[in-house]
Structures are given as structure tokens and as C-alpha cells.
Design a protein around this nucleic acid. Structure first.
Lengths: 214, 214
DNA sequence: TATTTACGGAACTGGACAGTCCAGTATTGA
DNA sequence: TCAATACTGGACTGTCCAGTTCCGTAAATA
């Protein structure tokens, strides 16, 4: 009986004989936690989570032994869903086009929306959670390495000239970002329109291609 | 009697007859708040701040009417000190050199040290403070506009070709930053050495000059 | 000097919240 | 059917903390 086997059992709701844990409720609890923690920070009460989940507090404690465990489970689930939209397009297309598409998705989905929301929630929890590493590894680090390997391939095929693909990938995200993420975290973002977002992406791609294009 | 006059009186410790407020203690309280909030987040107790400041809790409440007021005063004082090191060098020097110096200072002082520390503290306070705007305006926004006006001048004098100086300034900070700030906030920063920092700055300047140089 | 205010120390109030307990009901596996 | 467990709803405990109050003392102003 290994640790991961125990984890699997919990995931399926079986802990021996008798009535199994209701996984529907578990999901409802995690959904509620996402919502409530995002809105009120880690200071939100468990009673509030229970209320939003439509579940008794006791049920929460059946599924998650303590508040920080619930928080961690929420972060893990959300982190895993996060990297999906950041995929590279057709590798045969012109790099400028691929980068533009990537940039648009990045700016839409990551910087303005979910990523900042989760990040702010995590920081509101302060040092109380060791989820920071997991978050970075399953989120930003994945996007970074995807872009880096794309860039390396383009370099090898002679379409771009990129001595350090990882650094270049970071630079590209940095170019896109500027202070957008910072402004988003601080809540001083004046809601970027489609046109402005497109302009930002175009400018980033232009700079990137000027430095790394052939 | 205006609002600012009242503020001045408080700043000098005079609120009429009798013994004036001890400004030494006020500073000690702000120092302690900086330290304690940075370490424990906004959740830290006032008793703890009083202990670290070497002052009774009542004294804190004499100087600052409530916890969030103390927090705000701390943020204001710290924000104002923050932009100092980010100044442009000799405008006659080659832009690449000026940008390199700026980049080194930015990476040293801002991203790794104080800025992230304060930012994390502020985010730990969640929506409880309206200091976010002040922080951005007196911190990052100032560096941004300083660099932008430098870039505009270089453009006007024909040393660089920069259609949108503000955007370009943001891009430069973004290039420097990459994911460094994000890693710093999440505490997954593997402590950058001098050589690596220099390499990062050089790479950023190289990309920037490739796009905007003459 | 008389008055006014700041300071320390410590006790206190009121409220919020994590986590538990319980009594009754519902739902499953054996 | 029986035994085991999940779920509800609410009451309850212990703790922590912001903010107040009281008292005695120190230090400034007028």
C-alpha cells in the first residue's frame, strides 16, 4: 500500500466499507474555494466556502483535513488547467505569425485573466502555502519551455537566429508583458481593448524579430 | 485650516498644547511595520508591531488611528524611497551604455529586493488597502516615464528610432524582467549571480538596440 | 506652576474564525 | 437486512486579534 494508492482511493472516494465520498460535492467544494478565495483572499472563512458550495462545513472537513489542504488542492487543480491555451501553432508557418498568435492568447488568457487571479490569491495566502513552486512549474515554466523548444527548432531550421532559446523565450514573454501583469496585480489596469492588445503584440513581435530574425 | 495643514501638524507632532508626539517613535513604528508586515503579511498583529518597535500599543494608536492607516503610511513612505536609484545617466553617453547601467540597477535593486518585498506585502493585504494605485504611480510609473522621456530625447536627437517611447520603455523593462519578478514573488528565484545578471542585461540591451538602434 | 498631552503596561471587550461534536438522516457495500 | 460511512444543521470551544480603557508617570507648552 503506497502513498499514491491512498491518494487514488481518496480521489475515487473510497476509504473502505460503507458509503463512499461524494465526488460531486468535492468538485463543488473546490469550485467554491476557487471562487471565494479569489474574491476574498485566503482570509475567507470556511463557513463561507461551505455556503457557496452548498455543503455543510463538516463535509468539507471530510474531504479536506484542514483549510490549507483545501487551498493546496484548489491551487493544484487550477494550475493544471492553466497551461492548456498556451500552445504553439503550425511549426511550418512563418515565425512572426506563430508568435503573434501565441502573444494574443497569452495576453488575453494569462496576464489579464486567470493567471493573475490565481497568483493574487496565492500571494494573499502569504508563506502559508508551499504551492508557489508547483504553480510556477506547472504554469509559467511549461509555457516557457514550449516556446523555447519551438524557438530552438526554428533556429536549427535556419528560420531564426537564437543562441539562447530559453532566455529568448523569457524575453518574448517579457516584451509582451511590460508592466501589464504588474498593473493587473495592483488593479490599476485600464481594461485593454482588442485594438490595443493587437498593437502590443505586434510591437513585441516586431522587436523580437528585429533581434532574432534572419 | 486646511487638510494639508492638519497633516503637517501631525507630521511635526503638534496637535495643540501639551507634550508633542515623539517623531522618533513614529519612525520606529513605521520601521517595525515595514519589517513585520514584510515578514508575516498584513495578518501580523498590532501587538507584534508594538513589540518590534519597542513601543506600547497605545502609542501606535496615538500616531495612527487604525491598522490600515499604519499600513498605508508605511507603503507611502516606502514607495517614495523606491524610485531614487532608477535615474538615467549622462544623456550624452551612448544609449547602449546608459541602458546597461539602468538595467543593472533595475535588476539589482528593484526586481530582486525591495520592490518585490513591498509588492508581496501589499498583495497579502488583499483588497483591504487602496495603496495599490499610489504604489504604482510613485514607483514603477516614475521609472517608466523617466526612461520614456530619455528615449524620446534620444529619438529627437537622432541617436535612436523610437516611434512610441512609453511602449518602448515598458518593453525594455519587460525584456530585463522576463519571469524574474514572477519567480521572485513566488520565491522560486535561484539567487542570480553578478555574471548572470550582467548577461541578462546585455541580452536585453542587445535586443532593444537591434530593434530601436540606428 | 498649572495644564495638557504623550507614554508604558496591562486588562478588557467584542467579534471573527478554525475546527469539533452531536443527533438525526441518507446512502452505500456486504 | 446490517453495518459502516457520508451528509446536514447547528451548537460549541478555544484562540486570536483590533481596538479601547484605565492608571500612573513623564514631558512639554503657556
Amino acid at each position: 500500500m503506497t502513498v499514491s494508492m491512498v491518494a487514488d482511493e481518496v480521489r475515487e472516494g473510497r476509504r473502505g466499507a460503507g458509503r463512499p465520498l461524494d465526488m460531486t460535492k468535492r468538485d463543488a467544494i473546490l469550485d467554491a474555494a476557487e471562487d471565494v478565495f479569489a474574491r476574498e483572499g485566503y482570509g475567507a472563512s470556511m463557513d463561507r466556502v461551505a455556503e457557496v458550495a452548498g455543503v455543510s462545513k463538516q463535509t468539507i472537513y471530510k474531504h479536506f483535513s484542514a483549510k490549507d489542504r483545501l487551498f493546496d488542492a484548489m491551487v493544484v487543480r487550477r494550475s493544471e488547467r492553466m497551461t492548456e491555451p498556451v500552445t504553439m501553432g503550425d511549426p511550418a508557418a512563418p515565425p512572426a505569425e506563430v508568435l503573434t498568435n501565441l502573444g494574443l492568447r497569452f495576453l488575453e488568457l494569462m496576464v489579464e485573466g486567470q493567471l493573475n487571479c490565481l497568483l493574487r490569491t496565492m500571494l494573499s495566502a502569504g508563506a502559508q502555502s508551499e504551492m508557489s513552486g508547483h504553480f510556477y512549474q506547472t504554469g509559467p515554466a511549461v509555457s516557457l519551455s514550449r516556446l523555447a523548444s519551438y524557438l530552438k527548432r526554428q533556429h536549427d531550421e535556419g528560420r531564426l537566429s537564437i543562441p539562447d532559446p530559453i532566455l529568448a523565450a523569457e524575453q518574448f514573454f517579457g516584451l509582451l508583458n511590460g508592466h501589464v501583469q504588474l498593473r493587473g496585480l495592483l488593479g490599476v489596469l485600464p481594461a485593454m481593448g482588442d485594438a490595443e492588445r493587437q498593437a502590443r503584440v505586434d510591437a513585441a513581435v516586431r522587436v523580437f524579430m528585429a533581434a532574432y530574425g534572419r
